[in-house]
Design a protein around this nucleic acid. Structure first.
Lengths: 191, 191
DNA sequence: AAGTTTATTGACTCGTCAATCAACAAAAAG
DNA sequence: CTTTTTGTTGATTGACGAGTCAATAAACTT
């Protein structure tokens, strides 16, 4: 039972954060959505914060899996692999209300909860390392710098696309980042 | 009295959000820090959310003033003006705990509170227009695209610098963005 | 001076919520 | 079949907090 209940709670936590748009969700709401009493939620997770952290781990692992899958499906060319990472980062699923809510609130959580900050750092390192592998063959010496900027650009574009009025547009987000890469590769042509 | 009290409450709101790292601050805390009773805070602002929005307006107007000042001090060259905007965006003051807390939580607020979303949109449009003015002489046809990416990059770099473990480094943030601009201008050389 | 508006607060209402606990059920172990 | 472990909940506790209100004081108006 334990793993089933925990998984249900994690999913419900993410949904509720998405609905509320904040971490201001009660354990009862989460438990109810997961089909159990609040007491049971407390039984499996000690405290509410533990639920948040588990939810964060889940979101990050989903994203990680998405990127891994995209890379596996992509061919061998560095450009193609780079493109795959970017597309995975901006997949429509990542712009669903729950996902946006989760990410934004995890940023907030990372300010004060060390474990949340650590998890975020892990995500950023993984993204960076994936980007580096693609970039080294393309820009050699400047790979480190470009990877750092590219990572930040992905976060920034995501933020803007997620918060703009109107529906987010995955394709536009991808295009913006691809354009940056093109510039870094020295081709001014947007293609 | 009214404007004095309101100003004190706005300042106190920002400080308390920074301390808590979230919008989970009580009106009493804010009022106490502002040197008055919670009833008085409710008297001047109707509800807590109004205090948050006033605080957001204040943060945004501070940032706007900073950019305006930097532009006034900068010369006439588009590159210099661009650099001024970037430096103002990453001034050490913007990395103080209160400022970071305010920005991150305003992003969260923008998900659900239309007025917050609107304010954020205003900030983004202003930044975009400032960037465009500098970019048009430099990259002509691609100015719109570059301005959009540059705006997102600034947000993304800020986010990462603010949340990384260790103290944020304004200079590094500026350097990352400047490097991007250099690439967009077609100069591969990092300087 | 009497009246009116503004400033200010302590006390209160009404609600919420995290966390605990005792109790019950049901499965596993012996 | 009885004991222990695991699953489960309703009820409760204890605390906190947003917003209201009546009352007091102080400052202007006429």
């Amino acid at each position: 039972m334990e793993p089933i209940r925990k998984a249900a709670l994690v999913k419900a936590t993410i949904v509720e954060i998405g609905r509320a748009g904040s971490l201001d969700v009660t354990v009862s709401q989460i438990a109810k959505r997961a089909g159990m009493s609040s007491a049971l939620a407390h039984h499996y997770f000690g405290a509410k914060e533990d639920m948040f952290l588990a939810a964060m781990r889940h979101i990050l692992s989903l994203y990680g899996a998405e990127v891994r899958g995209a890379l596996a499906a992509a061919g061998e060319g560095p450009e193609a692999r780079l493109h795959a990472i970017v597309r995975a980062s901006f997949s429509p699923g990542n712009f669903r209300r729950e996902a946006v809510g989760a990410w934004l609130n995890f940023y907030v959580l990372a300010q004060t909860v060390p474990e949340a900050r650590r998890l975020l750092a892990v995500y950023q390192r993984r993204l960076r390392s994936n980007l580096l592998a693609c970039l080294r063959p393309l820009v050699a010496g400047r790979a480190e710098t470009v990877a750092a900027s590219l990572g930040a650009l992905i976060d920034g574009v995501y933020l803007r696309e997620a918060l703009k009025e109107g529906q987010p547009d995955s394709a536009a987000a991808v295009a913006a980042v691809v354009d940056f890469v093109a510039a870094e590769l020295g081709k001014t042509q947007t293609k």
